[in-house]
């Protein structure tokens, strides 16, 4: 699975419960939807760090790096 897919699977399975799970596009704003709360963001950060084996300093946990799946993949690339 490529990084985009890994992230999408995690988000759909773990963060978006119930009926909203279908079809998150790579460019969709994950946060504007209001479906993800702050604790979910932390789970996403932890998942990203563990899956791609990178260290994510707290200072990098900003909206610019985690707004979309595309943004996360870019950020991961910059840290690898």
């Amino acid at each position: 699975m490529n990084p985009h897919e890994q992230l999408r699977t995690f988000i759909e399975a773990k963060l978006l419960s119930g009926g909203q799970a279908a079809g998150v596009a790579y460019g969709d704003d994950l946060l504007l939807s209001g479906l993800i709360n702050s604790l979910d963001v932390m789970r996403l950060v932890t998942f990203t760090a563990e899956t791609f084996q990178i260290d994510i300093p707290a200072e990098d946990v900003v909206i610019e790096n985690f707004q979309t799946i595309d943004a996360i993949v870019d950020y991961v690339a910059s840290r690898q």
Binding site: S38, V41, M42, V45, A58, E59, V62
Partner: peptide
């Protein structure tokens, strides 16, 4: 604000 945001992240990660 940036420092507080990072501190908040650290706190939530260790909640």
């Amino acid at each position: 604000v940036r420092k507080v945001a990072a501190a908040n992240v650290r706190t939530l990660q260790n909640l």
